[in-house]
Design a protein around this nucleic acid. Sequence first.
DNA 1: TTAGGGTTAG
Length: 537
Amino acid sequence: MYNALIKGFSGENPIKGFEFYVRMLRANIVPDNLSFPFLVRACAQLEGIDMGIQAHGQIVKHGFENDVYVQNSLVYMYSMCGDIKAANEVFSRMLSPNVVSWTSIIAGFNKIGDVEMARELFDKMPERNLVTWSTMINGYAKNNCFEKAVELFQVLKDKGIKANETVMVSVISSYAHLGAIELGEKAHDYVVKNNLSLNVILGTALVDMYARCGSIEKAIKVFDQMPERDVLSWTALIAGFAMHGYAEKAIWFFSKMVNSGLKPRDITFTSLLSACSHGGLVEKGLELFESMKRDYGIEPRLEHYGCVVDLLGRAGKLAEAEKFVLEMPLKPNAPIWGALLGACRIHRNAEIAERVGNILIPLLPEHSGYYVLLSNIYARTNRWENVETMRQMMKEKGVKKPPGYSLIEVDGKVHNFKMGDKLHPEIEMIERKWDEILRKIRLAGYTGNTSDALFDIDEEEKENALHRHSEKLAIAYGVMRTEAPAPIRIVKNLRVCEDCHTATKLISKVFGRELIVRDRNRFHHFKEGSCSCMDYW
DNA sequence: TTAGGGTTAG
């Protein structure tokens, strides 16, 4: 009777499952080998490793530890709780692990971010099924190895195995992050051709992919086709508008969502506030921030405060933004101060920046971005001695800038450029192309802005730092390999630097090309010499 | 009858 109840509850209501488990223990009733797996799974769902360990003890005590179902559930439980050591111990003791055991341990390594080990096991296992493939592809996607994820999808296709909705979610999400619209479209075709169902998760992944790849129109089209949408589908679309700076659209869809009867979630407001920030709608943003708690009972989190700091700061209300940070009820974390520092950069305010830097750098001394930001602010306000201090501090603390990279998709292939890249097979041609571009934009008035570049010059990046930015190489490749009127689409992992921004505006004018650059924060649409971000980013 | 899926400020 208890066993049946545990089974019944564990899937959809793990807490209830626990309650019955505790009652069973009190009544000295032992779960059997069929109900233990449910119990252990319930522990995993709640990430309640202590309860899981206790259940494990019971399993051993009652001699169920050699049952494959029980063992699999333990591997799963430890994996999901992030205790890969314990998971691996159970797994390696198994006499005849089956495909579920292997898949569970692979999921465990993916969960802790060890995709290499996961892949090793994946390659080694005797037999794989679609869930295994899905686990590995998703593991790559979850750990930001998007290129690896889509490579493995290619292997799957080459083997003639048909992917299902779950696999396609990971694949499409990977293309979204890579900004690879052509490949993303192909994946969409695959979904249609194979009659996969546009369920709410797959649909949301597609909406997100099109939005992130710069085609908000297609994102809306998929959104309209979805038979069912939940709050995350709407949020993906709203986040898409935010990335492009279309604040009014974001707000319009938000009211439509609310009118359709769905309750917004905290992340919906994160996207919405970010939309207001990128679109410069200060008053509206503040109003929405107020209404979060008042109308929807959602307590603002640090992220939301961060958005408001960004909203005020970006609009030039630096004093107000600083006051807001000092008076907020939560303890401001590094990203909050970072948003304020970012605003100081836009509005060249070294005074506030210095105050913020003194708080921020001790708070997160290993984070290179803040040194760079602060240094750039000093450089822009000609405080060179401070720039030198920053450089020294970074050196002393051994802080390195993460390497920047830019992606461009040409003929269904994603090309990844790093700063000063020499690896690309066509690199010589690309460098010649860049020199040609440089000559032409110089004639149009480009002088090269070195203020942001100062910080790029560390030991490894000395030569030509500015003119070897990954973004410039990717743009040169785009100019070389694509024809107008097709836009040149670039995806960057970092924020666009001032110099690249200026250069790209001129390139759009001189070469008559439209360039769509997605950086860490948002989209920049360059056309006829100007950018959709209005130079605030 | 055990394993796998979308969203999140700067």
